[in-house]
């Protein structure tokens, strides 16, 4: 594998440029969030304090955490059960179910939002946490089911046969044989669902429009940046960093799992 030295240099240079472009926008809001209102050039955290109190981001981040946790926990639980059955049992109508869920994966969910709003209004759930949690579980189920089904189908049949020989019931096999080895697959699924749910915007805009107490972080940021557009952009930048911070810090820890999960899992 001999390649000219100049090619090595050129490729790395292009890669550096591509990476710099990828990082620059976030870096630029971090920098402007630390800039003081005077032009002395000194760094300050005052913008964060200002954004935190004016924009109500404490409550927004708590709402996001609650909604995301609920959506991810329920989705993973029901997806494990369904994925197990679809991988190892003869489920009646399984082809139709998988076909419908495949549609669910590529669907523009704009098509669901108006009836969702009316349905949740009928149930008196608009402007509550449940209005955000329930539909997002439904929308996350296809990804979760495909993910867990692919994992359970990859478990060697011998392992299940051996447990069956020992007289284990189907649920015992699920709980005591499969779940203990499903950790890595579930962890990647949790990471992906966490990311999608945390960043969800349209559903929040439509389903909790009036109640500030349940508004999620991206929605709060959207309102705040709209209202503050004419005012100090450094404070808006600080608010944006606050909203991105939980995701970015989780990403620092989980990036390997997330990237390989999305790039390799998507192809499956």
């Amino acid at each position: 594998m001999k390649v000219a030295r100049s090619e090595v240099v050129i490729t790395h240079t292009l890669l550096l440029i591509a990476t710099a472009i990828a990082v620059f926008p976030f870096l630029s809001i971090v920098i402007s969030s630390l800039r003081g209102s005077d032009s002395s050039g000194s760094l300050t955290f005052a913008n964060y304090a200002e954004a935190w109190t004016r924009g109500g981001f404490g409550s927004a981040l708590a709402s996001s955490a609650l909604v995301t946790t609920a959506v991810v926990a329920v989705t993973v639980a029901v997806a494990c059960l369904a994925g197990y059955a679809m991988a190892h049992m003869r489920v009646p109508g399984v082809k139709i179910m998988l076909g419908a869920m495949l549609l669910g994966l590529v669907l523009p969910y704009e098509v669901t939002v108006l009836p969702l709003y009316q349905m949740l209004a009928d149930w008196n759930l608009i402007d509550t946490y449940l209005a955000l949690i329930l539909p997002q579980i439904g929308l996350s189920v296809p990804l979760g089911v495909f993910w867990m089904r692919a994992f359970f189908a990859s478990v060697p049949k011998e392992l299940l046969e051996a447990a069956r020989m020992d007289g284990a019931s189907r649920f015992i096999i699920f709980r005591s044989v499969l779940m203990p080895i499903a950790g890595p697959a579930i962890a990647t699924l949790v990471t992906i669902l966490f990311l999608f749910t945390w960043n969800e915007f349209l559903l929040a805009l439509i389903l909790v429009p009036q109640n500030e107490a349940v508004q999620t972080a991206p929605l709060a940021l959207s309102f705040f940046s709209g209202a503050a557009r004419a005012s100090d952009p450094n404070i808006t930048a600080a608010a944006a960093v606050l909203v991105a911070l939980p995701i970015v810090s989780a990403y620092v820890v989980l990036q390997r799992r997330l990237i390989s999960g999305i790039t390799e899992g998507a192809v499956k």
Binding site: T19, A22, W198, F201, P218, L221, V243, I247, L258, I262
Partner: peptide
């Protein structure tokens, strides 16, 4: 890790920046 960063940011954060 750095090239994947745009994917993890909320679209609202992307819009602001």
């Amino acid at each position: 890790a750095l090239l994947f960063l745009p994917q993890i940011l909320s679209s609202v954060v992307v819009a602001v920046s």
